[in-house]
């Protein structure tokens, strides 16, 4: 299973970025291979409007099975992610990737829209 986190950096000790649209990185964890892939999203800083859809487009390309983030994605991003039937979990903002992963495994994260 491929799990995407909105993150502030790489590895287990990085933090989950609470923002979806304006997150600096997506960190993908594949639990089959136990490998991380860090995807740079910092170009979003230059996007004036529509950061949510732009990041959702990226998630589409990355095609994870699950997305874990902090706040729920805003309306536009949410409608795209719904269209993609993406499984979203929220409420992990500020946790480390490890904490968020464990919380997800233990069914402690809230389901997003």
């Amino acid at each position: 299973m491929k799990i995407a986190f909105t993150s502030t950096g790489d590895g287990w000790d990085a933090k989950v970025d609470p923002r979806f649209g304006r997150t600096d990185y997506f960190l993908i964890y594949d639990d089959a291979t136990e490998a991380f892939t860090l995807v740079d999203n910092t170009e979003i800083r230059s996007v004036e409007h529509g950061a949510g859809p732009k990041s959702a487009e990226k998630i589409f390309e990355l095609a994870p099975d699950v997305l874990i983030t902090g706040n729920g994605p805003g309306g536009n991003a949410a409608s795209i992610l719904t269209k993609m039937k993406m499984k979203i979990y929220v409420g992990a903002g500020g946790m480390s990737i490890r904490e968020a992963y464990n919380a997800f495994k233990n069914n402690e994260l809230q389901k997003g829209v």
């Binding site: 970025d17 609470p18 923002r19 979806f20 649209g21 304006r22 409007h49 902090g70 706040n71 805003g74 903002g93 500020g94």
Partner: peptide, 12 residues
């Protein structure tokens, strides 16, 4: 509008 959305994004 958009500025307040961005103000809220990432807030606790």
């Amino acid at each position: 509008g958009c500025p307040v959305i961005s103000s809220l994004s990432g807030a606790n």
